[in-house]
Write a protein that binds this DNA or RNA. Sequence first.
DNA 1: CATTTAACTTGCCAATCGACAAGTAATATA
DNA 2: TATATTACTTGTCGATTGGCAAGTTAAATG
Lengths: 218, 218
Amino acid sequence: MQNNAQIAAARSERKLRDAEATRRKLVDAALLAFSTQGYDGSSTRNIETQAGTKRGLINYHFGSKKALWKAAAEHLMSITERDLGAALADMNKLDEDQQLRFLIRSYVQFCAKHPELNRLMIQEGMARDWRLSWLLKRAVRPWYEQVCRVFNRAAELGTAPKMDAHHFYYVLTGAATLIFSNAAEAAALSSENPLAPKAVDTHANAVADSLTLNRSPL
Amino acid sequence: MQNNAQIAAARSERKLRDAEATRRKLVDAALLAFSTQGYDGSSTRNIETQAGTKRGLINYHFGSKKALWKAAAEHLMSITERDLGAALADMNKLDEDQQLRFLIRSYVQFCAKHPELNRLMIQEGMARDWRLSWLLKRAVRPWYEQVCRVFNRAAELGTAPKMDAHHFYYVLTGAATLIFSNAAEAAALSSENPLAPKAVDTHANAVADSLTLNRSPL
DNA sequence: CATTTAACTTGCCAATCGACAAGTAATATA
DNA sequence: TATATTACTTGTCGATTGGCAAGTTAAATG
């Protein structure tokens, strides 16, 4: 009877899905905590509470706080890789003159969608430890080199301002991200939500206008 | 005999100076801890150890961790107010055409000199709590309005790019500060110290070139 | 010289931290 | 049906947290 086997398989699948749902809730809560409060400022017990799970499940599913951080960071970096990779693919379909501006606007849109990314990078970019090393190897260095490559090509074409690629990277990253990673401050200063689609688009244009030279047809 | 009185006064003064030295060491260590590890991620005991003082002195001199944070933040904001105020005064002596660029360059230099400021703002700018409120009222809002004022005047003169002042503020602040607040990451990516005077000057020019329109004589 | 005061020291407290281990309950397998 | 495995639950541990209070030490004051 294949029916019984199917039912058993469905039950097994469902059990697996439940465990995966628990892992997912914990990863999401961990990402929020680690990115806003830092690694040492986040407690596993509070993460479990925020995730709506019971107390020992982080150690059961991940083994340690360190392993939870790596799982959460890996989850975020895989999303980042996928979305920014897609943006780069779209960019390559355009005329080279427009590529830098497109990349900048895509990057700002992505940062608004995932402020946890830049919050995490800020938390971990201050001190040299195992978490910064992990992030550099896993995601930052490849992205850094992609940005420098696009910038250097744009500089050849005359669509990028004349500066060192390294400084361009930090001007771009800082300009693109601060209004979103410090959203609470930005909202208090302007009484408008910086994550609203219209505000995001305005900011994307502001950054792109600042960092490309074809800002208006001559 | 005034001599005895003078000696007594000197001793009293010295005793007072020692207490003040202790307070100062604690404030310095607190600023380093709070800005890099966040408020909850910093422990008073570790701050005391880093300051080279004994264990109960934070509670003796400041009464609580919260009061220590306020003392450290007030110390940093008074330095900021003094230095950026001086920069604004110098700026006002220049031709109006050059004022925005001068302010941007001065601001970048200051951020490189005091990376704790932007690290603290990043730590506290993510969530609405009593520390963000304190910082907004004490320092951020006045500075924000000064920057917007200078930018709006530059926009009238045609020396600033066309964008909303609020977005200009965050483009400027992010572009100016990230390479310094994430100095460990930046050093790992470029193998040069981002806080070295030459690197600071290069970055100041990169930010100023991006955010002013008189980038080169036409 | 006796007393007061300021600066510092130390022991202790309840709460919380990450981690481990011994459970229970439900499902899968033989 | 008996056994094993998976997912989850809970009790407890030693270490650390912020804070309080009772000290000690040394200088100022009368």
